[in-house]
Design a protein around this nucleic acid. Structure first.
Lengths: 281, 281
DNA sequence: TCAAGATTTAATCTCGAGATTTTATGGCTT
DNA sequence: AAGCCATAAAATCTCGAGATTAAATCTTGA
């Protein structure tokens, strides 16, 4: 309840929308029955992309981007009848795209009762964080145990690119394009780190958790840019992994993953105290 | 490759179908483009069930039961055009039901290329087993740490029922109805064990793994009935959990989960040597 | 005899309209 | 004034047919 409230406030700030009334502010996050709150600006349909994807997958990706970017607030309903005009596809197509999002647990679906965006809360983020620590340290140990020359080369490359992206972020104000850039480099670095892990199931679950964490990371990022400490953590993981020090790499990774959570909690508390104490309209 | 081959043989024995030619036997498991191998006997549509479910969910459950029971061989294609007549629903409905199975990873779906039953292999089962050990020991520790009187009562009840089901299986030949009964009791026992674990994500992933393991467990069960050692393991977990001995409970649980995998490997090897060395028709 | 390209077949993908269920609204009773 | 039931509105769910894409077959040439 309380943490969910805090996230709601963060969310509103991130979206730069006029703050609704006290009741509506709560409803937006906690209740599925809120009135349509989102501006009608879905991501454009890319005409000639790399590979010709099906309409379902294309719609799925556009919807996912919109959800992660916060165009649809957590807890808000996703009505097929409305969305199909926004995204310009049939009802069945949109329905299946939503089904894919349900697999990612970004969208929930109760039988005969429609779809809505999964809620966000600090408790949920902590759960995501700790589960990810458990799986990622395990996967990292297995990946390091099976390391080879190719892997070390790929890892060096990914680390280098990430470093450059972090420099760019460090030297400027947080801009969406830079955040997207860093996000991709960060994803790739973590992906390569675990590339030699033989457990497909562990990797599958981690990919789900990573996508979930994306929403929270984005909130934290827009307010507190990447610091040199984060870069130092990446460097420590990289060097330990290359050296084959599995225990050390796992420890640093655990700390690294938990750092984002701690940063969001810290910001949420500070935010609540200094800026959003007056909650009236 | 080799382990996948072994599972294919197990599968054929379980289904009691005439052994196809060498090529066809391999194709059935490894290739998605095999001719329709399954008998057309889908589960009947339950007319008046407990709660009125949507057609999509109903079809999903029928399909899942048929896949787990082995009516559709691993790797075989699931063509919407054929299935919609068998299950007597529209194409869109069947399509969405298949989408739900994709979430469970019991069915795969390549864009524009249709659906097929997920493959089975001993490697995959080992992965499932080890990932489940990692998550379930973690969840069990958290559940025990948060135990209370209600939980102990529920656990005693579930353990009692499981014991009775195991007695019934022990005293008779393996029959499908008894296996189904034991399966449900076993599921419930493990579910109650973890009921106090606060990590929803861990439990979510475990539920997926449990459903996956169901297919493999069923193969092992039909050939090697529940022994008293399995019952002893359940008792050990139960007593340690009630007593609050988290480390002990976790250790026994890990062994318990790995036992099923070891039993299937042992049977597969034995089976291959004594009976299926001649692979010709 | 083998390989590459064109034709045929078959399946998936997509859409719009109709049937069923849920939710919201208004009036009535206690 | 509060709670409950009937009515109305809106949304989900479902289906069949058409468009698009992938696979299989046949033909042609080297």
């Amino acid at each position: 309840m309380a943490s969910s409230d805090i996230v709601a406030k963060l969310w509103q700030r991130l979206q730069n929308v006029a703050k609704p009334s006290k009741l509506a502010g709560l409803m937006t996050v906690t209740s599925p029955s809120s009135p349509p709150p989102a501006p009608r600006l879905p991501a454009p349909r890319p005409e000639a992309s790399g590979t010709p994807k099906s309409l379902i997958v294309g719609t799925y990706e556009r919807l996912r981007a919109d959800i992660i970017a916060g165009r649809y607030a957590p807890g808000s309903r996703l009505r097929v009848e409305h969305l199909k005009t926004d995204y310009d596809v049939g009802a069945g197509t949109l329905r299946e795209a939503l089904g894919l999002l349900v697999s990612d647990a970004l969208v929930l679906n109760r039988d005969q009762r429609g779809f809505w965006v999964a809620d966000m809360s600090l408790d949920d983020f902590r759960d995501i964080t700790e589960t990810r620590v458990l799986l990622e340290t395990s996967a990292l140990r297995q990946s390091i145990a099976a390391r080879d020359d190719d892997w070390e080369g790929d890892l060096s490359s990914a680390f280098h690119r990430l470093s450059r992206a972090e420099e760019r972020l460090d030297n400027s104000q947080p801009a969406t394009v830079l955040v997207n850039d860093w996000e991709e480099c960060n994803r790739r670095f973590h992906h390569v780190l675990l590339a030699r892990c033989p457990s497909h199931w562990t990797l599958h679950f981690l990919s789900i958790l990573y996508r979930q964490a994306e929403r929270y990371r984005r909130v934290a990022l827009m307010h507190r840019p990447i610091g040199r400490d984060v870069h130092a953590e990446h460097r420590a993981v990289f060097e330990a992994a290359i050296a084959g020090k599995a225990d050390e790499a796992a420890d640093v990774t655990a700390t690294h993953i938990r750092t984002t959570y701690a940063a969001l909690v810290a910001y949420a508390k500070e935010h609540r105290i200094t800026q959003l104490v007056p909650d009236s309209a």
